[in-house]
Nucleic acid binder design. Structure first.
Length: 428
RNA sequence: GUGCCAGUAGCUCAAUGGCAGAGCACCUGACUGUGGAUCAGGUGGUUGUGGGUUCGACCCCCAUCUGGCACCCCA
């Protein structure tokens, strides 16, 4: 690293192979979202800080957002999340929109945090929401979308689990244990941290909170009870709907899933890798008061967000992310036999492009071995040689670099032959 | 924002105060009409950056940047 100016902390350079993976993720997100009838939308990346003043967690705005004055002196923010923007967009056209809304988005977000593995300052996030319906079946639809995303990628049930809980259920259980309302936020934190602390520390934390021995005992019973969901009419309906939607293999009830954000009111869920090696892959839930803070009438909704960083880490670990070479946009390389034939190669490349075949042409004459090696390096599937022999006989030599086989075909039939090769190759 | 660990060739890592090295990768040749294999040779470094200590610093000290771990928070 001589005199190269470094990239900013927590940002990533997307080299073509990285970009290929990001776009692969985007394509899968799009196809799953659209398969459930969701429409893509997008908001500004820059927002007024006032938009976040009412909503979000206090910390998210005050501690974790990029905020700076523009040249006019107004404080603006690089958006740390999409929900406030969504709320505004819905409120602005509340009378004009056809509810229920099914909207999704995939774009960049920024948070001023200390980077770690799976956590950067600039990241991409899939947001998807169903707005205007307040039913357990709507909750199930969002969970089913997450499950379908995993299934479509080839994730096996059990490799990644979607863990589901319900805040109202936990609240009524806390009430049944006579845990006073003012203690419950602390108890939620306690539950959230069970896996992060030693049993002894966790126990001490509970007592410090002010829980009685009986309450602590009851809490532990709750967290060990995998049938607790049957006491929640909402969850009973949600799980029945998940069954009908074919999502059950990816979904489990988990009483310790709470989620940090205050605005969740009912069912909440998170996806985790089996080993718990990474952070949560996605998280979401039901909120019942989306737009009133930005001036609209209250609307119920359910949605989730998935960051690209953890998702890509986990999918790489599972061997699901394809080799970027497979995603190469230039599967065919036309070689240049000698300087005097450069334009012949250009003409051939043009012919093929006009027929709809993506083609890169070597830009100058060079040894064939060098050009074939280059074809290998850029992930080309096919190399075409056009030399004096082929020119004289009105043919081209077409080499399948994956199979190592070459055929000399009449130039008139080259397009057809290439289409077959490309189709068979992408199928494998 | 707090504490801790790390940073040496494109990558993975050696060298512990005394000549900056290896493997892989890359380039060239064997191979002037054919990629991956093999063999031979070669390029590549202000040791993250800036100061300090020392006859001498990759090594010790200070600062700073970046990455990672735990807090915090969450995608």
């Amino acid at each position: 690293m001589k005199n190269i100016i470094q990239s900013l902390k927590g940002t990533r350079d997307f080299y073509p192979e990285d970009m290929a993976i990001r776009n692969w993720l985007y394509r899968n997100i799009r196809s799953v979202s659209e398969s459930f009838g969701y429409q893509e939308y997008e908001g500004p990346f820059l927002e007024s800080i006032a938009l976040y003043a009412a909503k979000s967690g206090e910390e998210l705005v005050k501690e974790q957002s990029f905020v700076f004055p523009d040249r006019g002196g107004d404080l603006i923010t690089l958006r740390p999340e999409l929900t406030p923007t969504l709320a505004r967009m819905v409120a602005q056209r509340q009378r004009a929109l056809a509810f229920p809304l099914r909207w999704w988005s995939f774009g960049p977000f920024w948070r001023y945090e200390r980077p770690q593995k799976g956590r950067t300052r600039e990241f991409f996030q899939w947001n998807i929401d169903l707005i205007g319906v307040d039913t357990p079946e709507a909750d199930a639809e969002l969970i089913a979308i997450a499950a379908q995303f995993l299934r479509q990628l080839g994730v096996q049930p059990g490799q990644i689990n979607i863990l589901v809980n319900n805040r109202r259920l936990m609240d009524s259980e806390f009430a049944a244990l006579n845990i006073p309302a003012e203690l419950r936020p602390g108890v939620l934190r306690l539950v959230d941290r069970r896996d992060k602390m030693s049993p002894a520390d966790w126990n001490a934390y509970a007592i410090e909170l002010g829980l009685t021995a009986a309450q602590f005992e009851g809490l532990q019973r709750l967290l060990a009870n995998n049938d607790l969901w049957q006491k929640s009419p909402e969850l009973v309906r949600t799980f029945a709907a998940l069954d009908a939607l074919g999502a059950s293999p990816y979904v489990r009830f988990a009483p310790h899933i709470i989620r940090g954000l205050d605005y969740y009111t009912g069912t909440v869920f998170e996806a985790w890798d089996q080993a718990g090696e990474f952070r949560a892959i996605l998280g979401g839930g039901r909120y019942d008061n989306l737009v009133s803070e930005v001036g609209g009438d209250p609307l119920p909704g359910v949605g989730f967000a998935m960051g690209d960083v953890v998702a890509t880490l986990v999918l790489k670990k599972l061997g699901i992310v394809p080799d970027p070479a497979v995603l190469s946009p230039a599967p065919v390389l036309v070689t240049v036999f000698e300087a005097g034939m450069l334009l012949e190669s250009f003409e051939l490349a043009n012919e093929l492009r006009q027929a709809g075949i993506p083609v890169a042409c070597y830009p100058e004459a060079a040894k064939l071995s060098r050009q074939l090696k280059f074809a290998d390096r850029i992930g080309a599937k096919i190399a075409i040689v056009l030399g004096p022999d082929e020119l004289a006989s009105g043919s081209v030599a077409i080499k399948d670099l994956h199979l190592g086989q070459q055929a000399v075909v009449p130039r008139a039939g080259a397009v057809q032959y290439l289409r077959q090769l490309l189709a068979s190759d992408s199928a494998s």
